[in-house]
Design a protein around this nucleic acid. Structure first.
Lengths: 135, 135
DNA sequence: TGTACTGTAACAAAAATAATTACAGAATGA
DNA sequence: TCATTCTGTAATTATTTTTGTTACAGTACA
């Protein structure tokens, strides 16, 4: 499991806390304690989903592009998710085995169902709700 | 993300299908298409949780230790889970940052809540239900 | 007593993840 | 105008995680 979800949520929380003030990738990286280039990559992704925006050049940085109350954590999860969470499913079971032959399709439907439950749970909370805990 | 959940479920499904007949780690590995030693390791774990049992020596192998209807997939998930599913949480954010200082505790409570939703969803289905799909 | 298994450790290989280096280009302001 | 401080992005390296491999002792069977 990679660390993209917590990193993205950390970034978003910091940006929310900054109340519109621009934060540099160096500053963000310093709080999260990871490499600034990783932060910039993650921000590119968050920007793709319309959560944040950035300003280049001196004095530049990033800021929230929508209200924290309009970003729910399920959306954030969807923005960073890559594989199925329960298994990478890059295995190719033996097609000669009656079980192996079919298992991937059953696993996938199991995964998406379970993952939906996870996302639905995350979606109950917005970034604003989450940020409110930091007091 | 590792492949332990699908591997375990694949093993259990094959054992259920075998209806008590002993299956060797070589046979199981052949269907899953992974290394037999990995299978044996996974079986050790499944045994620890009482799902399967094995017999050593010639003609040995593994078999289900409880009824497939009494194994639900949430239990299987719990048996193989290690990290939090939403992030490894091995990062140490900057303790001087008011956000960084607190975020891990909030992430952890978020994770366990979301993971509970996932497990609850998985628990709706038993191994018997899952195996029934292979017809 | 040979054969076919499991259990388990130690090590190697491969894959995934993260860090680092580097630099072009944008915006600022002295 | 030009040094400075940022972002955007690619390329490379390092680290960590995961998987595969080899090896062998011990067990059970025939």
């Amino acid at each position: 499991m990679n660390n993209r979800f917590p990193v993205s949520l950390h970034i978003l929380t910091l940006l929310d806390d900054a109340k519109g003030e621009l934060l540099s990738s160096d500053y963000l990286a310093g709080s999260i304690n990871i490499n600034p280039v990783l932060v910039r990559k993650e921000i590119m992704n968050l920007r793709k989903f319309g959560f944040v925006d950035s300003k280049e050049g001196k004095g530049g940085g990033s800021f929230l592009a929508k209200n924290a109350a309009d970003i729910n954590l399920g959306e954030v999860y969807n923005a960073v998710k890559s594989d199925y969470i329960l298994g990478q499913n890059k295995n190719e079971p033996n097609p000669k085995c009656p079980i192996g032959k079919q298992i991937n399709q059953h696993l996938i439907s199991l995964y998406s169902d379970a993952e939906n439950a996870l996302i639905q749970n995350l979606s109950k909370q917005t970034l604003a709700d989450f940020a409110l805990k930091f007091k």
